[in-house]
């Protein structure tokens, strides 16, 4: 059984992807397709995590940072839009790189939703926060993230991007009515939440950047963790 696991999984994946494509083309039914595409986007990064050499210390480090990101979400649960997770993910990625940032973001979304409720939004949040970390890791050596102001701008932008990614699954449930006006209405409706998210990101990054990067860098140096 174990020998056939990988081919079996691939076959199953292809089968569902085929169904999704059929549904999309024949019936203009995009929800399944979007889920398949989302998983396809997440998959390579998780496969990379499975395959790359990783010390147990580094694995625990990733788990700790994911859990801290998840815990940081809890005290702010009452304020819609305010999600310190983004800031924690960006800073972790800033110090430990793109892959770590992606894993921390995605796992934080999955784990925190055990407390906030899993729903159709879970994979989208995993994707959005994973991408937040991934892009922050990619850009960490660039001119943008080198200076403090750039970091804040980056956080601000991701506050909106996060909201927009989350809007996609709302839009997808109305494939027929999809028009620029509907897009505009949806984005307008989420604007205040996105703005709150963006501003809180700027605030959290401004407060955390100095202290947290120092703490994280100390660990990276002291124990030689996740040097790429």
């Amino acid at each position: 059984m174990a020998r056939f696991r990988i081919p079996l999984l691939i076959a199953l994946g292809l089968f569902i992807a085929g169904l999704a494509l059929t549904a999309a083309f024949t019936d203009r039914h995009y929800v399944l397709l979007s889920v398949v595409l989302l998983l396809a986007a997440l998959l390579p990064l998780f496969i990379r995590l499975e395959r790359r050499p990783l010390q147990s210390r580094e694995l625990v480090l990733l788990a700790v940072l994911s859990a801290i990101a998840a815990v940081s979400r809890i005290p702010f649960a009452a304020l819609p839009g305010v999600k310190p997770v983004s800031a924690v993910v960006i800073l972790s990625a800033y110090v430990f790189g793109a892959e770590a940032g992606f894993v921390i973001g995605a796992v934080a979304a999955l784990v925190s939703n055990i407390y906030f409720g899993q729903g159709p939004w879970t994979p989208w949040q995993m994707f959005a926060w994973g991408m937040t970390g991934l892009t922050a890791g990619w850009l960490r050596r660039s001119w943008l993230l080198r200076r403090r102001a750039g970091l804040l701008v980056f956080g601000f932008i991701w506050g909106f991007l996060f909201g927009w990614i989350m809007n996609i699954w709302v839009l997808l449930s109305l494939p027929d009515a999809l028009s620029w006006r509907l897009v505009a209405v949806t984005f307008a409706a989420s604007f205040y939440f996105d703005l709150a998210h963006a501003l809180s990101n700027v605030f959290f990054l401004a407060v955390l950047a100095g202290g947290w990067t120092k703490v994280l860098q100390r660990f990276r140096k002291k124990y030689g963790l996740l040097q790429q």
Binding site: L9, F46, E50, L59, A63, A67, I68, S112, Y115
Partner: peptide
Amino acid sequence: AAAAPRTALLTLMAIRFV
């Protein structure tokens, strides 16, 4: 865990940490 043992372990640890 059958499909992605390391990711599953990582997630389980995070779940315990919360």
